[in-house]
Design a protein around this nucleic acid. Structure first.
Lengths: 212, 212, 212, 212
DNA sequence: AATGAATGAGTGTTCATTCAT
DNA sequence: TATGAATGAACACTCATTCAT
């Protein structure tokens, strides 16, 4: 792994563990066993590192929520989408804790964030529309986008919510899976008679993960 | 007003305007025209000030969401509750932006926060139960607490959500009123035939405030 | 002496001895036996310290070159002016070494510098005009200001000149006195028959100081 | 062009444009499209590069001010000398801004500087002596060297003077030509009746260049 | 109660220089 | 010859906190 990648991943790890605000560039360098100068050889400044982390985030968001085409809809397909959601929430969980702080300090990043969120919402809506077309969801067209938006909102603030409403501060994977279950619950409310078993199996899948 | 109270209110004002993180104890002292030494005469440290602000928050939360007894349910009653919600969101809006950060740094505060939130949830649930009993809500008993929880969740993260999904950062009163409308929408979904007009008038009331 | 004054004078001393560029704010604090935080309690930044030094410079320049009125012109009067010139060159000698560097970094200071230099030139010209009126100088009116300008130029760059054209880098008082003698030479070239002895005595006065 | 030469000329260009102090070795390497390691393969350190630039300066100074022999004195001859002066001031203008700084940091360079300046002064004096012998200057023998010295002093500090007494910082060719005119003025003051037209034509030549 | 000078560890960052390849 | 990653001491500056008065 190249040093610049090690810096990005090391920073991400430390940010997730201790919050972006309390991790200094010297902490990152020390943790990786490199000099602060070397860190600044690879990155202009701390913001630059955060922007690189954000690029990973963007890529994962764009890859993961592509509307399916000509595909049999089954539990595996849905699991794929929710696994992506888990992945993003888990790997970038510091962002869901500190995002306001971070975006407030970097106008350029805020703009990228707004764009990528808008795109993700559009693609999620398209997926829901597909599901409706394939008879899995019983929902009015006008309600598709609001549903996608609410699902996103729950997903986005689940970590922050849990972090403040739990006495143990550390967020583990089980907590994230609980959040997924909440989002699935929203979706299941629009299940059709025929799709209900599929959604129930989906729910069971993550229930198991949330309990382990 | 006593100096210690001036410090609490001055800090709250500055935190709301600029965020807790970027306001130093010296800023607070300078803004009040007192010396930093004096500030530390009245408060052990910055955390101590935040704890005092939190006490105000606690008091307002406890006063404002008392279940009504032997009272005619009308729009005024509901407006009373939602005005309290507005009051809290507006006066302590910095908390809804930086709460994770703040609670992460102070375990004692986190515990107070959990207790007060639990109590607020219990009282909110009791209010909803009252409304059901009085024929304003059509809802199963098991769903009362989850509904109260969801309403709280939306209320809590509305400010953070808006702050990140808007390109303009400043939160004004209208933005808070929009959040209230979202919460009312959740409630209205369980309105009875007879209570629907009441909820609609409630909605109109805040719609006007959100537009002004 | 107040701490802020100690910082200004301590900085001036260190700048004169080692050059402004190689003296850090931590050097200054360490030299005075105070903490870096304390230095920044009294001054916004390094530039702010330099600006305070510059204010001393301005004041001295304005006080020292006031055109005389209703006064007997004798050696003492001229010595007064040249002692001022010595004082400024000696106490602020770092400025004559690093001025380009310093002014390049601070546009506001450059503007103050241009104003104070222009005023000094005007007052010097007025003094020369007085000397002409009193029969000490034989010079055309049009040549008064250019003469003042040339005298200033020699005075200003003498230190830089000596610092580069001498193998010993340290500038001592004798070196400054030599510079004064060069400036006096320019003036003496316009002496009248009757004033020549006065200028010669002036020259002898500084010759003695330059040799000691 | 060999890499080491490219480094010298590239550095000179950047120093002239931005000042020696603000140009780092990494800037130089990046500007030339070579690696910092390669730069340090060719040069021991930054000082070493400056010393090489200084060698170019030395060479130009030695070539350009050779006393003429058995030659007809006309405007062209004088223009040749002053063009050399322009060339040196223009191509090494960063030295006239930062020389004190540079020489203070490098004792060896200071010694070379003193030697080359002394030789230049001697040669300039010889040229003036030639001009006197050929009837172009009316000057006492004792005054020849002081005149040469004053001319040098004006030439040397002209750039620094303009940089500080002008609100616009950029030094262009016209500014240098103005400096040359000041030096010519010093010389013209000692013109003989017969040489005056020659000096006037010399003056006009540079006047045109200063205005374009 | 109040002042305000003082502290000192820490912040993000820079840059001449080194070194394995 | 050349690369470019790596070093580390230094920089200007910050801020929660202390303390003598």
């Amino acid at each position: 792994m190249k040093t610049s990648e090690k810096i990005v991943h090391g920073s991400l790890k430390l940010f997730n563990e201790h919050g972006e605000r309390s991790i200094t560039t010297n902490h990152i360098a020390a943790d990786l066993g490199i000099s602060p100068g070397n860190l600044y050889y690879h990155f202009k400044n701390k913001e630059d590192i955060i922007q690189s982390i954000f690029s990973l985030y963007e890529a994962k968001l764009q890859d993961g929520f592509q509307p399916y085409v000509d595909q049999q809809v089954d539990v595996e397909l849905l699991v794929g989408y929710f696994d992506t959601m888990f992945d993003i929430l888990w790997h970038f969980r510091f962002m869901y804790t500190n995002i306001t702080d971070i975006l407030n300090r970097d106008q350029a990043l805020l703009e990228r964030y707004l764009i990528v969120q808008e795109q993700a919402l559009a693609r999620s809506s398209a997926i829901l529309a597909n599901l409706k077309k394939d008879g899995l969801l019983d929902i009015e067209d006008n309600d598709i986008r609001p549903l996608a938006d609410t699902m996103r909102m729950i997903a986005c603030f689940w970590i922050g919510y849990k972090q403040t409403h739990l006495s143990t501060v550390t967020i583990d994977k089980a907590v994230i899976y609980q959040g997924l279950l909440r989002v699935i619950m929203l979706l299941k409310a629009h299940a059709t008679m025929s799709s209900l078993p599929t959604f129930k199996r989906l729910e069971q899948h993550y229930q198991q993960l949330a309990n382990s």
